[in-house]
Design a binder for these strands. Sequence first.
DNA 1: TTCATATTCAACCGTTAGGTTGAATATTAT
DNA 2: ATAATATTCAACCTAACGGTTGAATATGAA
Lengths: 121, 121
Amino acid sequence: MKHAASSLNQILTALADPTRRAILHRLSTADARVTEIARPFRMSLNAVSKHIRVLERARLVRRRRAGREHFLSFNPAPLNDATAWMEGQRALWSARLNALDAMLQAEDRASFDSKTKGSMR
Amino acid sequence: MKHAASSLNQILTALADPTRRAILHRLSTADARVTEIARPFRMSLNAVSKHIRVLERARLVRRRRAGREHFLSFNPAPLNDATAWMEGQRALWSARLNALDAMLQAEDRASFDSKTKGSMR
DNA sequence: TTCATATTCAACCGTTAGGTTGAATATTAT
DNA sequence: ATAATATTCAACCTAACGGTTGAATATGAA
């Protein structure tokens, strides 16, 4: 897998913008056309159109054309890639904590041994 | 919670850069100093220092100073915020699918009823 | 004290990102 | 055929991003 990093880049940069997250949120409850999606925003239709393209590039949004109107739909699959990466980090992190914990427990055992040995004449 | 969006912004923009993800990956297995972190990269120390600041702003990295050296550590907590948002989208999405499914099943039942009723003279 | 090391600050530079406006294109409605 | 609608394309602007270099600061070592 050589494209994993670059696709992760696209997914995460797509998600990093609040407007795009709002669009995605909207689409996760119902499909919608470009104009419908743009309406609630205070920016131009063109600006929203650009945001949608970014989401498409990240494969978070799919487009189905029907005449002059384009229906957009949410595709949750790429979110798995993102969460997978995060889970990976957390896994490394907890592995490290477990190792540290084991080490400390071993130390405790050693200190207990030495104490009992000392007090046990 | 009014700062949630802006902190999500910071977290996701921090994660959206591959250099920063590499730094985080490195830190999730062991703490390290700035110079240590910078060494494997082909960019200047200053560039890495900047990346670290972005990660700090997102609270994904903590800094502990000891004399002239700064020890950095990974803080996984903000990843929860990010995954929580994604899980939210997926939840909406599957709710929607469930609703659609229920609707289709109801339709099937109706069509079955009308068929049996029709054949039942 | 002097020198070396660890790190940031400050200024700059090229590229990209997010936004605007205006025109182009394609489709539907009158 | 004409007009209205839905959407993108193209050019442009500004601010932010990722990077560089050079100097500043603070601490540790000789």
